[in-house]
Amino acid sequence: MKSAPFSVVGVMTAVLSAQTGGRFEEAKRLGVSYLESGQYDKAAGKFEEVWEENQSDVFVAENLALAYLNGESRKRDSGITTKALELMKKAVEMGGRAPVLVLHSQERLSVLQGREFTNYCSGTLGFRPGKVQFVVAKCHSSAKPQPFDLTAGDIQEFDYDGGGKRGGFRIKTREKTYHFAPRTFLREDADLIMELARQYLAGGK
């Protein structure tokens, strides 16, 4: 009985694929580590390695957008924000979210008066058609985590807080009002969040 033909090319392709996959997984792991430690430009570099080779990875699209919006490179390159928005759109098209890093303040006056937050939780606000979700990463001082997953119909108001001082904005439901600011405290990032709310929530009510 003849043995099945042995394909060297097939074996090498499988080996190279495994090696490449391993390299990409390591790049993603490092990217997440850099994000969590606030090294956003380094995180962007790692996620770019993967995205340049595979633009079907929703996890990379979301996290590269976060890295772009929070890195120092954005101050020098006005096109970075556009790249981040394009990645968000791509992520949503693939079933993911349009994410932004935010601080949830549990001291309403801090937001209204534009003061520094001391009692807050950091996390990610993620938009998708008809929905917005807050995922808590870490809480500071005596703040308690208050994650949520809201539909457009749950939201009565999504607007600036205190005239948008330090980027403050609020999400009001029938039961509760949540006070936020972008991680950067920039008004332009609050404007970006307002635009995401209009884009993904306005049509879902």
Rank of each mutant, 00 (worst) to 15 (best):
L16Q: 14
L16M: 14
S17D: 11
A18L: 10
A18N: 11
A18R: 11
A18M: 11
Q19C: 10
T20V: 14
T20E: 15
T20F: 00
T20H: 04
T20I: 13
T20M: 12
G21Q: 08
G22I: 04
G22M: 02
R23I: 08
R23G: 08
R23P: 00
E25M: 14
E26R: 09
E26A: 13
A27W: 09
K28Q: 10
K28G: 00
K28T: 05
K28R: 14
R29D: 08
R29K: 14
L30N: 09
L30A: 06
G31N: 09
V32C: 00
V32K: 12
S33A: 15
S33G: 09
S33N: 12
Y34P: 06
L35D: 08
E36I: 08
E36P: 04
E36G: 05
G38H: 12
G38I: 12
G38C: 14
G38A: 10
G38S: 09
Q39T: 04
Y40D: 07
D41C: 07
D41Y: 04
D41H: 11
D41M: 08
K42A: 12
A43P: 02
A44E: 07
K46Q: 15
K46E: 15
K46N: 15
K46C: 11
K46L: 08
E49N: 06
E49Q: 12
V50C: 06
W51F: 13
E52D: 13
E52R: 08
E53K: 14
N54W: 10
D57A: 03
V58C: 06
V58A: 12
V60I: 03
V60N: 03
A61K: 01
A61D: 02
A61Q: 04
A61I: 03
E62C: 01
E62I: 00
N63K: 05
N63Y: 09
L64N: 01
A65L: 01
L66W: 03
A67N: 02
Y68I: 03
Y68E: 02
L69K: 02
N70M: 10
N70L: 10
G71D: 04
G71R: 05
G71C: 01
G71M: 02
E72I: 05
S73M: 12
S73W: 08
K75F: 07
K75R: 11
K75W: 00
K75T: 14
R76L: 15
R76M: 09
D77K: 15
S78Y: 03
S78E: 13
G79T: 15
G79A: 10
I80P: 06
T81E: 15
T82C: 00
K83L: 05
K83E: 05
M88N: 11
K89W: 10
K89T: 13
K90R: 15
A91F: 09
V92Q: 06
V92D: 11
E93F: 01
E93K: 14
E93M: 07
E93W: 00
M94L: 15
G95M: 05
G96E: 06
R97Q: 12
R97A: 08
A98Q: 04
P99K: 01
P99H: 01
P99R: 00
P99L: 04
V100G: 05
V100F: 06
L101D: 11
L101E: 10
V102I: 10
V102H: 07
V102R: 01
L103P: 00
L103W: 03
H104A: 10
H104N: 12
H104S: 09
S105I: 01
S105G: 12
S105F: 11
